[in-house]
Structure formats: C-alpha cells, structure tokens
Amino acid sequence: ADQAPEERTRLPKDAVDGVIAGWVGQAFNAPNIARVAALRAGLPEKSQAVTVQNNCVSSIEAVSAAARFILAGEGELYLACGTESMSRLPYTIDGTRSAKALRSLAVVKEKWSELATSPDVAVLDSIEQGLTDPVAGINMAGCAEVSAQMHGVTREAQDEYARESFRRAVAGWNAGFYASHVVPVTEGGAALLAKDEYPFLREDLIDKPKMFAKAGAFYDNAAYPLSDFYRDFGRHVVGKEYREGDKGTVTLFNSCGRSDGASAVIVATENKAKELGLEILAELKGWGYYGNNPAHMGVAPALAAPVALKRAGVAFEDLDLIELHEPFAATVLAIFKFGREQFGHDWEAKNASGALNP
C-alpha cells in the first residue's frame, strides 16, 4: 500500500519525511509496522515512522497525525496509511511467565495439552478480546444491538440498508470505479488477490433479499434470547426496558465482515505538492474526534461530525460527499436518527441523494 501511491505519482522516495500507520490488531512480529513498511518500501532510513491505534478510526487518526506533524514543522510530506489482517489475529496464551506452565517456550510446547485446564493460564481468542470493550464489558456487535434498541432501528431497516450497501459495493467494482485506486496483492509477480472478494460473497443477498431473513439474530435465539441480552446489558440501553415480544435485530448479514487490507494516502503541504507536481485531490480543512460511552460507540460519528464541521467552517447541508464507517447497519441507521435529533443533521437525506457512501 505504501508503494502504490509512490509509483502512481512517481513520488521520489527521498521526498517522504515519514510514514504514519494506523493498525488496530498490532502484532509482535512487526512492532511499529510503520517503520517496517517504510524500510521495506525503500524509504530513507532517516524518515519518521509512527504506528497509531485508535480502534476503528485508526486510519483517519493516521491522516490527522500526519497533518499534525506537518503543522508542527517536523516535515512537509508523509504517507498516512492503515492496515489490518484479521485473518492473522492469533489465539493467545495469557498468564505470567513465572507460572510453571509458562516459564519457557520449551515448557509451553511440552505441556501444551494441559494449558487449557491450568488455573494459571487462559487461552484466549484475540479477535473476541479485541472487539470487546474492557470498560463497558460489551463487544461491538452488542453495541450495535444497544444502538438498535435505543434508537428504534428495526431489523427490516437494517437488512434493507445492508443490501443497498452490498449493491453499491458490487456495482462499483463492476463499473471499474475501484480500478483506479486498488492494487492487487502479489507474490513473485503473480497476483494472489486482485480485488476485494467480500462484497461478491454477498451477491446472492442482493439478488434474493428474502435470504436476509434466514440469518439468526445474534442476541435473540433459543440459546440466548433478547431478554437475556437486556439482563446482561440492559443498563446500556438508555431510556428503554425489555418488553415481551421485543426482537433482536443484529445478524451476520447486516453486519460487516472480518477482512484483511491496507491503504495509503499522501499528506503534504500545498507548496510541497506543487513542487513535486502532485495532483491535489483534496484539502484537509479540519477534523474532529469525540469520545462517548463505549457501549454507545456506534453513534460516535454523529457526535464527532459537528466538531469537525465547526473547525472546518462548513455546514452539514453543504456537504457533497460523506464517507461513513459501516460496521453495522444498526449503528449507521442509529446515526441517522441520533444525528438529526441532536444536531439537525439529515444523514438520511444525504444517503438517499447518493452523497453518503455512493
């Protein structure tokens, strides 16, 4: 991903002052992946390299961080990138190395079959751990259900939104929209993966929307009914209590997939861009971040939007294009409702007009 913008713009490597990388599931085999990427891309050894982590907005944080470095006078041109490889997130062994079962790698291998029952060791799934907030004690899918219950977002509305999102993604690929800014994953000159395969795994849902109904609700099934969800997490559902007959809404089909990928963009001063003959695609006018209750993380973009808009001196209604994170249809539709109620921002109209995630 770092090399693609360099090659397409013929950017001289010595013009890059640094790399800022956003990465959520950081691994020990590439500590500070920004540094690893910079060196493997052939950038100058002297270049800065910083890896940032801010959960789902880590890539946006990388862009903001690059701008901050520039504003602080530390450089004029940075590569801001993001990466994730959820398929490689490991199962982990948690415990102190002073425990007998963990005192060396040789002992771990020798006692492998006993680790799961050891009182001093926990064998964990890092994906589930990473997607569960340690403060609120609820995972991201649970947060989506909280959003749906609080803001009255029906399953039918979520399924409809998810279908349209899949349709737009597949249509974009088929129309060649992504060809200009997606590069294949290659090895030894051969393409291992030429395009994002996930949207095409959902093509049947686009053509046969009734299939959405076949997906079971995460928090409303025989093993875990919605009443149990309210028992465990109802404290987060502000302003509503469980009523007999209420339904769970979040499913596999109206949620995002777990995926791998990387991206990069050049962030530079206007003068530096012109000096290097780079095409200026956009001007960064401002940004805004807003922390809220972790259980209500789904509506955070609605809270951050007025901060960014105020700093940029732009009105919501004047926005021609909005790229909105889509982790769950439930959270997106909750943003539509919450944003309009709290700030008068008509997200739904932007979506209907094609200005949002076209």
Rank of each mutant, 00 (worst) to 15 (best):
D2Q: 00
A4M: 09
P5T: 06
K13G: 05
A15G: 12
A37M: 14
P44T: 09
V57R: 06
I70E: 03
E76P: 06
E76L: 04
L79F: 10
T83H: 07
A99T: 05
R103C: 13
K109C: 03
K111H: 11
A116S: 14
D120M: 01
V123M: 15
V123Q: 09
S126Y: 02
D133G: 08
V135P: 05
I138K: 11
V146C: 04
A148M: 14
Q158V: 00
D159R: 03
A162S: 14
F166A: 07
V182H: 04
G189W: 08
L193S: 10
F212R: 06
G216M: 04
A217Q: 09
Y219G: 01
A222P: 03
F233C: 00
H236E: 01
E241T: 15
T251D: 07
L252Q: 02
R258S: 08
K272C: 11
L276G: 14
I280A: 10
E283T: 13
K285G: 05
Y290I: 00
A300E: 12
A300K: 04
P301V: 04
L309G: 04
L309T: 03
A312C: 09
L319K: 02
H325P: 00
A329N: 12
R340G: 12
W347S: 02
A352K: 15
S353V: 02
L356F: 01
N357I: 01
P358R: 08
